[in-house]
Design a binder for these strands. Structure first.
Lengths: 203, 203
DNA sequence: AAGTTTATTAAACATTTGTTTAGTTTTAAA
DNA sequence: TTTAAAACTAAACAAATGTTTAATAAACTT
């Protein structure tokens, strides 16, 4: 198999689990079963690899709301439900990667990287913002604070994914409960956010 | 001044800004202007210092809702507003420390520490949970998903504090806007959450 | 004042870190 | 098949890491 790809995969897994500083290039090389020097050969530096890892994985995150939201056969409520569902799906599909992004974002590190990461996180929010704005203009929605409404939507999901231990404690579950893979929790979150957003947005 | 305290203060600032792995004991010693060996003398190890730092700062976070929520002269709506205000205040009072807690929580590190951190974060949510539960039983509130409602409240605030860059982009602000200290933003967030929670909870 | 604990220090220690070098093997083109 | 580029490797490098040691200074105790 392509060793370059193997390095990217191993690095993604290790960075996600242990953080950037918590992962050594030797850890990565060992996991990918390649020579350490190959990392510098392909990616110049550990930092270079890190950037490529984010680029590599970020492409999976695009869910392209645009088509859905421009579909005129759907009611605003139906569109809202889809937004909620897709946003949950995206975050739950890889909590580790989201942790990675947010961890680096909260550090005082290179603002160029922070800039790129925040762009990745934000790209899916732009069409949602436009959708709510349009809904208000149409009179479908109440005059809410658009930006903070989006923050609430994403923040609710994100906070539940903070950590397994945290989620278990909030929900009052036992140690055998895995919040990151539990289908019932995903459904429960969908119902909560649908209810919340309906009450918040609809007149 | 007490050198032990100086170390704790410097360590808190550096761990908050650069993360646990991103901070060396020499960085801390240098900032506190003490000899490196003093860290091990007082705290045995870097890890030991880290735990003491969290303990040291966590005590500031207790806002004691209990008194407020047991005050019968306040209406449920007034209590709700206070909860929102105090929760925002607490998070905004030290975003760096919250970042520190959450960063370590998302890592696969020692689950004993993760346990303690999640307890710190959760301690203020317990009385809120009881408050909503009581409100539902009284008929003041709708039958909402209590745990996820709390998640929404805290998650909304937390997400806005993810990073300065992120907050600026979400809100469409320029580089000179500091979301962490901006009083207007705090007020705006208060208004948003009041509106949101009223629509969500009240019949 | 003598003795004893506590506070503080400079230096050394053993690992681990990311990176480079200089060489070998493999692949592919001419 | 010769040649050149690409892929890969073992070893070494310099710097940074957390921790310990052995010694000294300061602060109490008796």
């Amino acid at each position: 198999m392509d060793k370059k790809e193997l390095i990217l995969q191993s690095a993604l897994a290790l960075f996600s689990a242990n953080g950037y500083k918590g992962t050594s290039v030797r850890d990565i090389a060992s996991a990918a079963e390649v020579n350490v020097a190959l990392i510098n050969y392909y990616f110049n530096s550990k930092e270079g690899l890190f950037e490529k890892v984010i680029e590599y994985r970020a492409s999976f995150l695009k869910t392209l709301f645009d088509d859905l939201l421009n579909n005129t056969s759907l009611s605003p409520i139906e569109k809202l439900d889809i937004i909620i569902e897709k946003t949950i799906e995206r975050k739950f599909s890889d909590p580790g990667f989201h942790h990675l992004l947010h961890r680096e974002l909260t550090l005082g590190r290179s603002s160029e990287l922070a800039d790129r990461i925040s762009d990745i996180l934000l790209q899916n929010l732009v069409p949602v913002k436009a959708f709510i704005k349009k809904g208000i203009a149409n009179g479908d929605f109440k005059e809410v604070d658009i930006e903070l409404t989006i923050t609430t939507l994403v923040g609710s999901i994100h906070y539940l994914l903070t950590s397994e231990i945290m989620a278990r404690k909030i929900l009052g579950k036992k140690a055998d409960f895995n919040p990151f893979t539990n289908k019932k929790l995903i459904q429960r979150l969908n119902e909560h956010l649908r209810q919340l957003m309906r009450a918040h947005l609809l007149k």
